[in-house]
């Protein structure tokens, strides 16, 4: 297989404190990788390194571009990196306010990426926005409503639509179901699962919720103090954890 993204010995230090250290893995197209661990374990640092928002102190992130070339993110210009981020990548944030323009209608939120890559036909943009609203199960009648009038679950779904409209190949998700009611979570997870499978998306998913990791991911990295302490097939890591910390993590989950 030809990996989409490869992390090579990624390290990041904040002074004497370790952000993350010597992280290495390869992500295949269509693969969902969960990064789990508790707060402060380096999950978010790693996510920012992988998406080029933070420069590593050592190591590299290699990404296979749509034209087939594989490039170190650090070698891309700011303009190239941003273009990549708004066409070939998606970002789903825990707090929709970081991922949406709250003052802009749902249609405008979805259309932004299209306009950003030069679409100048209002009718076509709107048609596309309608189609995506339908796909993420938001009533198309709400196309001109602002996200401030949406529920938490709808905002997350709108965030997803806004990202997927340019058909990205890789989506970064940071606790996409965090802070939502359990009932809303289930529906969102099912939607994400369906989209990931239908569109063949690769996903890097940061979560501390092992149930979310189990439902969505193929593979898990367990992080502690900036290190990856265990990695493997999701159900293997959760059902037969090898490391002491993973055993603690898994055994601490309350069964419903």
């Amino acid at each position: 297989m030809n990996p989409l993204l490869v992390a090579e010995g990624l390290s990041k230090f904040y002074g004497a404190r370790i952000g993350c250290r010597d992280v290495r893995f390869a992500l295949e197209p269509g693969e969902v990788l969960a990064i789990v661990g508790e707060s402060g374990s380096g999950k978010t640092t790693l996510l920012n390194l992988l998406s080029g928002q933070l420069a590593p102190d050592s190591g590299a992130v290699r990404y296979r571009l749509r034209d087939g070339r594989t490039k170190n993110l650090l070698d891309l210009s700011e303009a190239e990196r941003r273009l990549l981020a708004r066409t070939d990548w998606g970002f789903v944030h825990q707090d929709a306010r970081n991922g949406l323009r709250m003052g802009v209608s749902a249609g405008g939120n979805i259309g932004e990426r299209l306009m950003g890559v030069g679409d100048r036909h209002y009718g076509r943009i709107r048609e596309n926005a309608m189609a995506w609203l339908g796909r993420v199960e938001i009533d198309t009648g709400r196309i001109d409503d602002k996200p401030t009038q949406f529920s938490g679950g709808m905002r997350q779904r709108l965030q997803i639509a806004r990202n997927l409209v340019t058909h990205p190949r890789l989506v970064f998700m940071d606790e996409p179901t965090g802070g939502l009611d359990v009932s809303v979570q289930a529906r969102l997870l099912d939607l994400i699962r369906g989209l990931v499978a239908d569109l063949g998306l690769a996903v890097v998913l940061v979560t501390h919720d092992l149930a979310v990791a189990r439902l969505l991911s193929h593979r898990i990295l367990v992080m502690k103090d900036g290190h990856v302490i265990e990695a493997g097939l999701t159900d293997r890591v959760l059902d037969d954890p090898q490391e002491a910390y993973t055993q603690l993590l898994v055994s601490s989950v309350l069964a419903a």
């Binding site: 700011e78 941003r82 249609g107 932004e112 306009m115 950003g116 196309i143």
Partner: peptide, 30 residues
């Protein structure tokens, strides 16, 4: 559309003007 001055300067520098059309889109939609 974008309150951060650091961000608007970057948008100008990279000629990322999709946002400008979002504003016009909103007008037509409304």
């Amino acid at each position: 559309l974008e309150p951060r001055e650091t961000e608007t300067r970057t948008l100008h520098a990279l000629a990322e003007y999709g946002l400008m059309h979002v504003r016009l889109y909103e007008d037509i939609a409304q």
